[in-house]
Write a protein that binds this DNA or RNA. Structure first.
Lengths: 193, 193, 193, 193
DNA sequence: CTATAAGCGAGACGGTACGTCGAGTCTTAAT
DNA sequence: ATTAAGACTCGACGTACCGTCTCGCTTATAG
C-alpha cells in the first residue's frame, strides 16, 4: 500500500533501530518517529513491528548482497562447509543478529508471521540445500538438510555454545556420514579429530 | 525474597495465564491480579515476566513429575528413541508448549535470562544425553547430543514441519550412524523408507 | 493543548471531586476517571492537580457569575462593606471553599503555581480594590487594600475565628480610619460597638 | 507514647528533611529512614507527617530560643515595630520557612491539625499581642492584633509581595491610627512617605 | 485550470501496562 | 514488652506505546 519511497524510509528506520536499541524496545511509535512518517502510514501497511522487521529482512535478502546461495562445485563436503560458514557468518553478523533474533522471538508468539517466515524464507532455504545434497547422491536429502541446520540453530537460538573454529568441518563430516552410504562415501568414524 | 506461599500463588497464576491467554499478552499486572498479589511483591522478586516463567518452569521441572530422564536400558537406539519421543511429547504438550515458546522468545531478547536458561536447564540436559551416549560407546557424545536435539528444535522453534510418526526412529538411526563406528554399530543406510 | 471539550470535562470533574471528596485526596487518576479522559491527556496539559484546580478556578472566575467586582456607588464605606461581605461569602461558600483551600495549600509548596496565582488573580484583585480606594480619596490605597484583605484571610487561612455578623462593618471603619485623613474622613474611634 | 530519645531523633529528622528536600516530599517512610526508626514506631505516635511537623515546631518553640515574645518597653509603637520585625524574620528564616509553609498547607486540608495549631500556637500569640495593646490603651486590642498580623500573613501566605524595609514602621502607624483615639495618640495621616 | 480525492504529517485521544514510591497493616525476631 | 526489620496489599505516580481518529496540507489525476 505504501509508496516505495515510504517503504525505504521505514526499512532503514527499523534496521537502524534494531541495531542500536535494546532488542525488545522496537515500537511502532519509535519506527514512525525515526522514519519521519506518521503512525497511520505505518498501520495502513503493517500490523506490527514484527511484520515490518520481516518485510525489511525480505527486502534485504531479495537484494543482491543479502543472499545466501548454496555453492555447487564438484566437492560436496567443501560446498557444505562453505555454506555452514556463510550461515554462521550471517547469524553472528552484528547488523543482522538482532534482527533475526527479534523475528525469531516474534515467530514464537505470532503464528501468521511464523507461516510467512516458513514459506518465504525457511522452506526455500531448506529446499535449496536439499537439492544440492540430492545432486551429491545423498539418499535422504531433506533429513540431511535438517541434520545440517538443526545443530547450528540449536546453538544460536538457545545460546548454548559459540561456534568453535573447525567445528563446521567436523559437523559436515558427521552429517554426511549419517546419511551417505557409509562404506563408499565417507571413511569410517575414527574419533573427533 | 518472596515467601514460599507467595511463590506458589505466582507460579500457578503464570502457568494458568500462559495456557489461557494469547502468548505475548502475559503482563506483570495480569500475573499480579491473577495471583492475588501486589505488583510490588512481584517486582521485589522477579524483574520480568520472562523471569517468572522461567522460575515457574524450573519449579515444575524440579518436582517429580516434570522431569525428562534419559533412559538407560541396554539398547542405546531404543533408549534414544524413547527420549526423542518424550521430548517431542513435552514440546507439543498443550500445557507446556506456550510456556516454552514464551521463554524461548524472551531468551532472544534477554541475555541474562538466556544464560540462566542455558546453565540450569539446557546444559544439564545435553550433559545427561551425552553421558548416556558415552556409555553406549559413542566416540563424540557431545556432538551426537547436538545432532540429536538440533533438528527437533529446528522444527519446533522455526515451525518448519510437524513431527511425523516414524520420524523419531529414523532420526536416531541417522544420528548413530553419524557418530558411531559405522561398520560395527549400525547397518549401512539403505534409503529413507 | 487540550481541546475545549476536554477542558470542560476536566474542569467539571475536578470541581465535583473537590466538593465531594476529602480535601487532600484529589489525584490525577481520580480526575481522569471522573472526567472520562485518559491520564495522558491530563498530563499533556497540566503538570499537577494544583494546576488543574487553578485553571478550573480561573475558568470559573472569568465566566460572568464567578466574578467579584468592586462596587462603585458614591459611598466608600458602604462599597467596601459590601465587598467584604461578598469576599467572605465566597470564601465560605461550600462549593468554593474546598477549592480555594486546596489551591492555597498547593501555593505553599509549588512556587510556579504561586506566581501564576499571584499574577492572574491576587494582584488584579488588590489593584481593583486599590483603585476604588484611590477614587475615594484614600491617600495610601495599596496599604489600605492590604489592611482590608489581610485580616479576612488571616481568619480564613489560619482558621482562627469565624466571621461574626457586624464584624465587616467595624473592620471597614478601622481600615478607613487607618489610612484616611483622620479628622475629616471618619469620626474618632469611640470603642468597638 | 514514644520515648524522649525517639522523639528527638524524629524531630531532628523531620526538621532536616524539611530544609533539604522539596516541600511536598516529606513522607513517613523518609522520616523513618532518616531518623533510623521503624515506620511502625512513627505510626504508633503520629498519624501523619503534618502531625510530626507540628510537634517538632511546638518542641522548638517551647525551647528557649525559638520563642517570639512581645516586648514591653514604654513605647508601644516601638514595641510593635520590633514585634513585626521579629515575625517577619521568623517567617523568612530559611530554616523555618519551609516548615511553616508545610504546616500551613496541611492546615488547609486537615481540620484536626488546624484546631491544634490554632489552640496551641495562634490563639496564644494573638492573645499576647492583644494584651500588650490593651496595656497600651488601645480600645479594641483583639481587632488591632488582627490588623497587625493579617497583612503580614497575607503577603507571606499568598506570596503577593516581599517585605520592603520601612514597611513595618508604616504598617504599625496605620494599625495604631485605625484603633487608637485618633486625635490624641497619633498625628493625622499626611501621605505615604 | 481547477476540484476532488488520496496519501500523508501531525498529534489528540481513550486505553493498558510499565516500573516506582509511599501509605498503612501485619508478622517475625531480637533486645 | 517494645522495637527493628521488612513482607505485604493497595493506590497513585508519571511515562511509553497502543491503535483509532480527525485535521489540514500536498499532489496528482479527472472534469
Amino acid at each position: 500500500m505504501a509508496r516505495p519511497r515510504t517503504r525505504t524510509l521505514v526499512y532503514d528506520a527499523v534496521l537502524s533501530l534494531a541495531t542500536e536499541e535494546r532488542l525488545g524496545s522496537i515500537s511502532m511509535e519509535g519506527v514512525a518517529a525515526r522514519a519521519g512518517v506518521s503512525k497511520q502510514t505505518l498501520y495502513s501497511t503493517w500490523p506490527s513491528t514484527g511484520a515490518i522487521l520481516f518485510d525489511a529482512l525480505l527486502d534485504r535478502s531479495s537484494s543482491d548482497d543479502g543472499k545466501i546461495v548454496v555453492p555447487h562445485s564438484g566437492d560436496l563436503a567443501a560446498d557444505l562447509e562453505s555454506l555452514v560458514a556463510a550461515t554462521i557468518e550471517e547469524l553472528t553478523d552484528p547488523t543482522l543478529e538482532p534482527l533475526l533474533r527479534a523475528v525469531t522471538a516474534d515467530i514464537q508468539i505470532d503464528e501468521v508471521l511464523a507461516a510467512q517466515y516458513r514459506d518465504r524464507l525457511l522452506t526455500p532455504q531448506l529446499k535449496a540445500i536439499s537439492d544440492r545434497l540430492q545432486r551429491g547422491a545423498i539418499e535422504d536429502p531433506d533429513a540431511a538438510a535438517e541434520l545440517l541446520l538443526g545443530p547450528i540453530l540449536h546453538r544460536w537460538l538457545l545460546r548454548t555454545r559459540a561456534f568453535e573454529p573447525g567445528w563446521a568441518s567436523a559437523h559436515v563430516q558427521r552429517v554426511l556420514r549419517a546419511t551417505a552410504n557409509c562404506a563408499v562415501q565417507v571413511p569410517p568414524h575414527t574419533g573427533n579429530q
